[in-house]
């Protein structure tokens, strides 16, 4: 496209004023105007139409009532913003105070060391054992019976399960006889 053709198109679109032309083309087209009579004729024709368009006049500015109406509908100030700000700050502040209190409160001083006396140690031990109580298992009860020796070996008297071992009772002679009679009676 020749420069003159482009100038014609620019004039047709934007009119005669270089201020309205595309900024990157302005200098070149103005230089063409300075050189070419034909270019100036085209520019003048565009200028006449510009002047006629300007005859439309300016649009009178709107009255202040329009601005008032528009501003009446403007967004209200967000009063809740401050409330929300406080709502978020207060718990944080409370947490900070609590943390400060916990970290800055002095720990209770350890009790002064006391030299234990022999009597005091004994008393303390007894008190402690009393507090613990005594736990007695059924096995303990069995083993505590007089006359039962769990370590006594097999075979034992009248024991029919020798593989498993039988307790041997260390009984007096009368007791032993009594036990033998009782065993026979149970078998019969």
């Amino acid at each position: 496209m020749s420069d003159l053709t482009r100038l014609e198109r620019v004039l047709e679109a934007y009119g005669a004023e270089p201020e309205r032309w595309p900024a990157d083309e302005r200098a070149g087209l103005e230089a063409l105007l300075a050189q070419s009579g034909r270019a100036r004729d085209l520019r003048d024709a565009a200028a006449r139409l510009d002047a006629l368009l300007d005859a439309a006049g300016d649009v009178p500015p709107p009255g202040p009532e329009l601005a008032d109406r528009v501003l009446d509908r403007a967004p209200p100030e967000r009063a809740t913003t401050h409330r929300w700000r406080w709502a978020s700050v207060v718990p944080l502040a409370a947490a900070a105070v609590l943390a400060l209190y916990v970290t800055r409160t002095p720990e209770p001083a350890p009790p002064a060391p006391v030299e234990p006396s022999a009597a005091a140690t004994t008393d303390s031990f007894e008190i402690a054992m009393t507090d613990l109580g005594v736990y007695t298992t059924p096995t303990d009860v069995l083993l505590s019976l007089d006359g039962v020796d769990p370590l006594a070996g097999v075979p034992a008297f009248d024991c029919e399960e020798s593989d498993l071992g039988c307790l041997q009772l260390d009984l007096e002679g009368s007791d032993r006889r009594t036990m033998q009679q009782e065993a026979r009676r149970m078998r019969t």
């Binding site: 300016d58 500015p61 709107p62 528009v70 501003l71 403007a74 967004p75 209200p76 100030e77 967000r78």
Partner: peptide, 27 residues
């Protein structure tokens, strides 16, 4: 600022744009 309800910001936006928008729509 206008979004936070700042009246002055709204006023400036109106001063800056209302006349041109009105002229445009009127044309």
């Amino acid at each position: 600022r206008a979004g936070q309800g700042d009246r002055e910001a709204c006023q400036r936006l109106v001063e800056r744009h209302l006349g041109r928008i009105h002229a445009f729509a009127t044309r």
